[in-house]
Amino acid sequence: MTPAARVQTAIEILDTIAAAARDGGPPADAIFAEAMRARRYAGSKDRRAIRNHVYDAIRNVRSAPVSGRAAMLALADADPELAVLFDGAAYGPAVITADEPRAETGLATPALLKLFDPLVGKAECAAMLARAPLDLRANRLHSSRAELATIFPDGEAITGLADGWRLPGETAAVQHAAYAEGQFEVQDAASQLAAVALAAEAGQTIVDLCAGAGGKTLAIASAINDEAAILACDTNRARLQQLPPRANRAGATQIETLLLNPGQEVAMLADRMGKADRVIVDAPCSGSGTWRRSPELRWRSTPARLDRHVADQTKLLALGADLVAPGGKLLYAVCSIIAREGRAQVDEFLTRHPGWTADTDILPDGVGRPAGRGFLLTPGHDGCDGFFLARLTSPC
């Protein structure tokens, strides 16, 4: 493919990604993969160049553009080498005209910026869209961070995490035999810190209410050396089905999965109520803390979607509280930097649940910042995904 043809292909893919963002369609990675399957003539260099164009445009544009061309033009206006590829050649993009629309650039729309937690200032903006590193978590059941350091010597320890090892983002770690042997998992430092903040102990009864594919479930099992019963729940069958083989690879034998039917969660968990020593609610959210990895989520943010997330979080927190035994602890976690999903959600929970208290010492020294009655992790301050964490203790 010519350089100009690569740009035109990126424009066509961006058209599909923007439409999917507006209509709730598939994520950008899935769209890109399908587009490349349909263009088998594209070589590895072509695919890499097209991907760079697509994601550079997504990171540069603050909301879903009117067209993929408008997004690429916003890049070309600041990049003369890109602009010259708009030359009207065969298979390439048409020549640029001064009056055609350009997408608006920036981190997010003014309306969305106003929703950020007060701790997220202007200094965070660049970090929010920088390319993320690759974080690994050593699985204590099979390995250690020292062993990861031997396998991947170009990495570095992650502050506050005994098992965390950070590598350059382009590292193909999962292709190493150590991954197949269960020695490590790929997991952002913020998610690892959530498992630490739960403060689980051997012999306890633990419920992961929104387990998904089980990343935090496995981190908890590793931290307690597989010495506690963990119930991993979710309403998404496809995601939850990924956990058993992952647990088998990790050597975690005390994990039970439970697929919940939406709207029937209370009935299906009736025999578990009031019995769990620890419950983690990693609730569905805007995903605003993960923009480094999924920058097109900015294009999907709407007031209606945020309202639905907040309502779901409220219900899940209430369900999680009912599962906690007297004196037990509930960890609320969202990969969000939006105040409504973080500190405000916890304030409302504590108002509705008299006698519950928020713990004040849940993260390692120097990690995170107090945000209301919880803690906020951000890319700029902590070098990890944006995350809000609050650990709440039930009255005895």
Rank of each mutant, 00 (worst) to 15 (best):
L167T: 05
L260W: 00
I50V: 14
P395W: 11
E34P: 02
D361H: 12
G212D: 01
D87C: 12
M268S: 09
A197S: 09
S63Y: 11
G372I: 14
G355T: 14
T257F: 03
D77N: 10
D135H: 13
A339G: 03
R352L: 14
G215T: 01
A177R: 09
K329I: 09
A390D: 01
R300T: 03
D99K: 15
G289P: 02
R166I: 10
A197C: 08
A228N: 07
A229R: 11
P133M: 04
Q345M: 06
R37S: 15
L112H: 13
E12H: 12
A162Q: 01
E341Y: 15
E34M: 13
L306N: 05
G320M: 14
A76K: 12
A173E: 03
K45H: 15
I337A: 12
A177V: 10
L198E: 03
H381M: 15
D226A: 11
R39A: 07
A42N: 13
A35C: 15
L389K: 07
A94V: 08
Y55K: 05
L14G: 09
G342Q: 02
G203P: 02
T253Y: 03
L115I: 10
L148Y: 11
L115N: 07
V61W: 09
R39N: 02
P370G: 13
T16H: 08
R343I: 10
F388E: 13
P244C: 05
R246E: 14
A30Q: 14
S294V: 08
L75F: 15
P364D: 07
R131S: 05
G25L: 05
A344C: 04
P27G: 11
A98F: 05
L331V: 13
P168D: 06
H53M: 07
E256D: 02
I31R: 05
R69E: 09
R239P: 08
V324E: 00
A49E: 15
A98Y: 05
L113G: 03
A76M: 09
A223W: 06
A190G: 12
D79G: 06
P93N: 11
K329S: 07
G203R: 08
L350Q: 07
A111R: 01
D271Q: 11
L377D: 04
P364H: 06
G160Y: 04
R140G: 02
R391A: 13
R102Q: 07
A276P: 13
Q313G: 10
